[in-house]
Design a protein around this nucleic acid. Sequence first.
DNA 1: TTGTTGACTCCCG
DNA 2: CCGGGAGCCAACA
Length: 119
Amino acid sequence: MPMTNFNARVYALVRQIPPGRLMTYSGVAAALGVPRGARAVGWALAMLPIGTDVPWQRVVNARGEVSERANHLNADLQVDLLAAEGVRFAPDAPRRILAFRRLLWEPPLTALVDQDNKG
DNA sequence: TTGTTGACTCCCG
DNA sequence: CCGGGAGCCAACA
């Protein structure tokens, strides 16, 4: 179901990720109906403003790590924010999330249709 | 419309 | 586990 504003759909879904829980880029893309759109999700998050209310830190890559990026400071911030939510990281690999699989969150179906349930 | 750019992923060695 | 290469998608120039 192609809709306009792919970015807005990404944000709407990411906003629903509970604190301390995680989704992968590919997971978000798949939930939006674009299973191969992981890169587009990353792109959407990259254009978020600094003071956004979107919990972008809860989106990580399929390897269970905080993705590196041009601004590695942002990656450090992401690690910090996640740590504040109780997410633990490997001592020898600061970007790698411990118990990553256990923290993964799957959106309820109602979360995926709330924009489209006009009847 | 074509080419480029990423906060990605999977597949090989 | 690490590194290289190809495929994918949306936004931008």
